[in-house]
Design a protein around this nucleic acid. Structure first.
Lengths: 193, 193
DNA sequence: ATTCCATCTTGTCATTGACAAGAATGCGCC
DNA sequence: GGCGCATTCTTGTCAATGACAAGATGGAAT
């Protein structure tokens, strides 16, 4: 029985998981590499070996988050064909993967220009933008880029307000219900509300 | 000439200003009390005397930000009477007071439940909500709270994406132009675009 | 079995946040 | 004018942290 066995099965994975958990508990700003090492049962310098430094670890976490988001959005779009559902899925993702999301959109915490993040973020953007094409022209308007930007802003803003605690309890209400209502507000122009 | 004179004219103010500047330079996560002390030309422990600790300082900065935001939105609404203008003003505020905004919506950095923050945030929310009443009923829909939430989500999301660097250069375009176009997307239902 | 290398440990240093204790300042007060 | 005295700031210190250097370990290839 080795309390600190060499060659941990998959230490990078364990550290990332510990990081996500720690973000939930103490927030991304209070994250400590040494605490993650303790959580994973390794020595204090082990995490840095795999990720270089703290920013490197969070960069990997952010890239992972954007990849998961892209996959999630793509899956929902293909399954439902509804862009409204994609918007709701964005919000759901943010709430369900709160730790990842909180890191993803705080680029001062990590190296936002690292190749894997840039690529993963582009994939997520593309998934969101692709959905715009499925909307009727009268909703999209003359410039699809504006529609995409508006859609992204709406769902992202909603998710951020929800996560960030800027909303009071009265303003929050039920998550899915509010998210759908807000999304409808943007995309159900001309239909009865 | 006293390089470190006692009774600095207004050290809390100087530290807050230094903090805003430092946030711009290194981001809110890299903020250091000792660095602020150096910027203000005082000893390393002086800032903590006025704000208790790091979180206390950022709490004050956030409260200040919400107060300024509330005042700004109120002024624009009273001057223009246009809720669309209020939305654009929200975005402009976020860009112009980037440092404050970056702290305001990262509640894990400060004590979000402190009385002054809660009050100032409520004032900003109220200013935003008040504007909803100026909109025609067919735009607001049956539930004004949803309209307010949607409006807030849109402008906040747009500002956050803009500040957070999640947008590529191609997606950004001109700030005011994009902000107006996006805001119109939400509030100019039925009108020609 | 020997070599080799990725993985992890141990040791160390500068920096930081927090706190305690002390010093300087200016104000009220006589 | 001088004396308390609370406020403001300084100095000193400690534990925790991130980063880095150097060494130990153990599996894999040969």
């Amino acid at each position: 029985m080795t309390p600190r066995a060499y060659h941990h099965g998959d230490l990078p994975r364990a550290v990332l998981d510990a990081a996500a958990q720690a973000v939930l508990e103490v927030g991304p700003s209070q994250l400590s590499l040494r605490d993650l090492a303790r959580r994973a049962g390794v020595s204090h310098a082990a995490p840095a070996y795999h990720f270089g430094n703290k920013a490197g670890l969070l960069t990997t976490l952010a890239a992972e988050g954007f990849q998961m988001l892209a996959q999630h959005l793509t899956e929902v779009l293909e399954r439902t064909g509804s862009f409204l559902e994609v918007g709701v899925a964005y919000v759901h993702f943010a709430v369900e993967h709160r730790a990842h999301t909180q890191v993803m959109f705080r680029p001062d915490l990590y190296e936002a220009s690292r190749a894997d993040v840039v690529q993963a973020r582009a994939a997520a953007t593309e998934a969101l933008t692709k959905g715009i094409a499925t909307l009727p022209p009268e909703v999209v308007g003359p410039d699809p880029r504006i529609a995409a930007l508006a859609a992204w802003s709406l769902v992202h803003g909603f998710a951020d307000l929800w996560l960030g605690g800027a909303l009071t309890e009265a303003e929050r209400g039920d998550l899915t219900e509010s998210a759908q209502a807000v999304a409808r507000f943007l995309f159900d122009k001309g239909t009865a509300r």
